[in-house]
Amino acid sequence: MDISSSRKIRSISYAKYGYLFILPFFVVYAFFQVYPLFNTFYLSTQKSTTETGSVVLENVGLDNFRAILFGEGKSTDDAGNVIYKETRQAGAIKKDFFRVMGNTLILWFGNFIPQIIISLLLAAWFTDAYLKVKGKGFFKIVMYMPNIITAASVAALFVMLFSDSQLGAINSMIHNAGGETVPFVSGKDQSRVLIMIIQTWMWFGNTTIMLMSGIMGINPSLFEAANIDGASPNQQFFLITIPLLKPIMLYTMVTSMIGGLQMFDIPYLYNVGTSQNPFTETIAVFIYNHFHNIKPNYGYSASSSVVLFVITALLGSICFAVNRDKDNTPKAKRGAKALKNKLGGL
């Protein structure tokens, strides 16, 4: 009796400190993450009006979602019943919503694909035991550098270089050489391509380092064995490196996807004038613009955020599900073994 009670007290006193130590994180997390998350769900059912100056909220249920997803707004029929039909306002916001979703996907694909190709190539070169690239550390730092520069500076730099008119740095060269100026910042394709390039340039170093650590985590004896068995570098790359890199690749893809869906800074800042370029306006910019307006629409912002949250959660869990399957049935390793067997049999 005595022993058990004293034991109990001792264990409680230790746990208490443990909880105390981790408390700050949970407090901060609740305040800055959980509360805003739930508040977003709440705001997505509200409509904000500013007739008197300060923002007044009104509960509208799922009307915001009806508007942004289906273009249906509330109105009354001849008998005075509330009906939902396509209205100009809801139609316009729906069109905008799908436009910015499209922009987001285009910009994400356009920077993810070149980024992963370049990173994979560089990572393979830098980790190749026989290539012995000199100054690896230097290159790693140089490639990582663009990521250290704040996005605002990068965007400002590119806007200055690529200004649309004949007075911009690049355009003045084109103009002086007798060519027609190119709208790098406001043109549809030009601005998108430029943003893809900026994003790729900023993030390929990060991805390269991630993939390099992934490749270095592969047991070198596999490469050695394959080499002794006479596998060509291409075979090694496609049959050993790539399959064993899949978990890291998936991780990169998930983080890049989440980051890509929330892409904000460069598309928002790679812009001149007071209004947003409609061809590079991403979903995050759209949310921001409706929130920070002279006449804010908290409901549209919040409901778009919720849709974005659902999409991100869905895509994220798909990726993780795929990833987990791979872990449980190590096909990749079997692939490597199969290669080994095959080569060994020769």
Partner: peptide, 9 residues
């Protein structure tokens, strides 16, 4: 052509 107001250019 395509010059934006308030821009440095």
């Amino acid at each position: 052509k395509d010059l934006a107001q308030w821009n440095n250019d």
